[in-house]
């Protein structure tokens, strides 16, 4: 039985058991590898995507339970046309190994969509589920503040 999903504006019919987590549908079936596997237990945030407007851990959402359209890092912006938050990440040279950054950016994008002027405390609260073993946190914080300022200019 196939399941129909809308991902980054495009419809995909997926022929996998309904309990397969969205993460593994994206990565192994559809080939959207920008969303990363880090822990499988919602403890690191590397697999964060948007379902509707909500940032979710895609390792915890079964294929059969996806309730709305899905946006992944690839749908947020491309190297040629980056989203404001991605440009801020580039400007602040956030990434080191880069593996967690898709999840960090998706989490930060959801925060800014809900709150265009987050305080340090708001950022602490929203981002503490996203682990970065390289310790890029100081630049993540700076990039979120910069993206917030930029979004208000527009």
């Amino acid at each position: 039985m196939s399941t129909s999903l809308k991902i980054n504006g495009k419809t995909h019919d997926v022929d996998l058991p309904e309990d397969v987590p969205l993460l593994w549908v994206l990565r192994d079936e559809i080939g959207l590898t920008g969303t990363k596997y880090g822990c499988g237990v919602a403890a690191c945030g590397a697999c964060t995507v948007h379902i509707g407007d909500t940032a979710v851990r895609s390792c915890q959402v079964a294929l059969g339970d996806v309730w709305d359209d899905v946006t992944t890092i690839e749908g947020l912006g491309t190297p040629e046309t980056m989203a404001v938050i991605q440009s801020a990440w580039v400007e602040h040279q956030v990434a080191q190994c880069g593996y967690c950054q898709s999840g960090q950016i998706m989490q930060a994008a959801a925060l800014l969509a809900e709150n265009d002027s987050p305080t340090d405390e708001d950022i602490d609260l929203a981002m503490q589920g996203n682990l970065c073993r390289c310790g890029t946190y100081p630049r993540i914080r700076a990039a979120i503040h910069a993206a917030s300022a930029k979004m208000k200019e527009v």
Partner: peptide, 11 residues
């Protein structure tokens, strides 16, 4: 940095 900010970097 662009690849790592857009999910296009290949690990």
């Amino acid at each position: 940095v662009v690849g790592k900010s857009t999910g296009t970097a290949q690990f």
